[in-house]
């Protein structure tokens, strides 16, 4: 029995997760049409970029970044305008740069100007609202019959899977670059900054610069997500960023159900898995007849419940204890 015991225990421990995964897959298989299954996966891949960005600010730097709603729309605005004017690839690249710049602004507000992190995010987000409208010139733009990076790839990857392949390639490149960066000296310094700032400064690392860098990368990813999404859906809306922070947080929290190890690799995998799982849960809920107006309420409830769970558990535990005492 001896050496087998750990494996056996591991399976027992993983069982609830396996059941969740299998149940989800069965639900997907039996209730959704194939086009919905694939469409949901495509969206999941695009929104994985958003989750990765929020993973950097919330999990690695451990600072809440509320500018996300603004930078997502910034990506949408830059991308949709360039695609509308015939250069979709340029739109994606510029969106990444613009997101990074916006992230730097939040970072500088927090570090150099001593603005509270939450307020700094709100300031950037609010400023971006005007900037985004200025870039887009009107509240929404359709890319109907315009070239996007998706339509450009249609001939290469075929009619059925081109959207899936393009999204997957971009996500793969982004997450690989992110993984490699986090293993460099600069990346390790960034991780340490969120982990223990005292130690970082005592190790001759400029923690302010690391935070600004972190916010730049985080918002570049969020903006990339917006840029991809607008070309994916062939439409750009100046309100598309609303609630994206909570959506990203919900994705991360869901992902952490599946991956409990706190390494960089698992963190990235967890954000991606969570973003995809979130889309399937949403698609399933809408399949059951949930009004699409409720999607944001839905993600808000997921985040609130997940964060409140430890407190709820404690409350239940305390009540149970009291009852068992009274019974005696």
């Amino acid at each position: 029995m001896g050496p087998d015991k750990p494996t056996y225990k591991k399976i027992i421990r993983l069982a609830p997760k396996l059941i969740i995964v299998i149940a989800l897959l069965l639900l997907i298989n039996f209730t959704m049409m194939e086009s919905v299954v694939i469409g949901t996966l495509e969206k999941g891949l695009v929104f994985s970029l958003l989750a990765l960005g929020i993973f950097i600010s919330f999990r690695i730097l451990d600072i809440p970044d509320l500018s996300v709603d603004g930078t997502f729309t910034l990506g949408v605005a830059v991308s949709v305008m360039n695609a509308f004017n015939g250069s979709p690839i340029k739109g994606i690249i510029l969106a990444v740069v613009a997101g990074a710049v916006a992230g730097c602004v939040t970072g500088i507000l927090i570090t150099k100007l001593n603005v509270q992190p939450i307020l700094a995010g709100i300031i950037t987000m609010t400023a971006l609202y005007s900037i985004n409208l200025t870039i887009m010139e009107r509240p929404n733009i359709s890319l109907y019959r315009k070239d996007t990076i998706y339509t450009m790839a249609k001939d290469i990857f075929g009619e059925d899977y081109y959207k899936l392949v393009v999204s997957a390639i971009v996500l793969l490149i982004a997450s690989l670059l992110l993984f490699m960066f986090l293993k460099t000296q600069a990346g390790m310094s960034l991780r340490a900054t969120g982990d223990n700032e005292y130690m970082v400064r005592a190790s001759s690392i400029n923690s302010d610069r690391m935070k600004i860098l972190g916010f730049a990368i985080a918002n570049a990813l969020v903006s990339l997500s917006g840029a991809m999404y607008t070309q994916y859906s062939s439409a750009g809306d100046s309100n598309s960023g609303t609630g994206m922070l909570v959506v990203g947080l919900a994705s991360i929290i869901i992902g952490e159900i599946f991956f409990t190890k706190h390494t960089i690799l698992f963190g990235i995998l967890s954000a991606i898995t969570g973003a995809i799982a979130y889309r399937y849960i949403l698609a399933f809920a809408m399949n059951l007849g949930m009004d699409s107006n409720y999607t944001k309420l839905f993600s808000a409830v997921i985040v609130a419940v997940a964060i409140a769970l430890p407190a709820i558990k404690q409350l239940i535990g305390r009540t149970a204890k009291r009852f068992s005492k009274e019974n005696r």
Binding site: A192, N196, M199, V200, A202
Partner: peptide, 12 residues
């Protein structure tokens, strides 16, 4: 205070 808890010994 002197070490980053979520990073490994070799990373520190």
């Amino acid at each position: 205070r002197g070490t980053a808890p979520n990073m490994t010994i070799e990373e520190n």
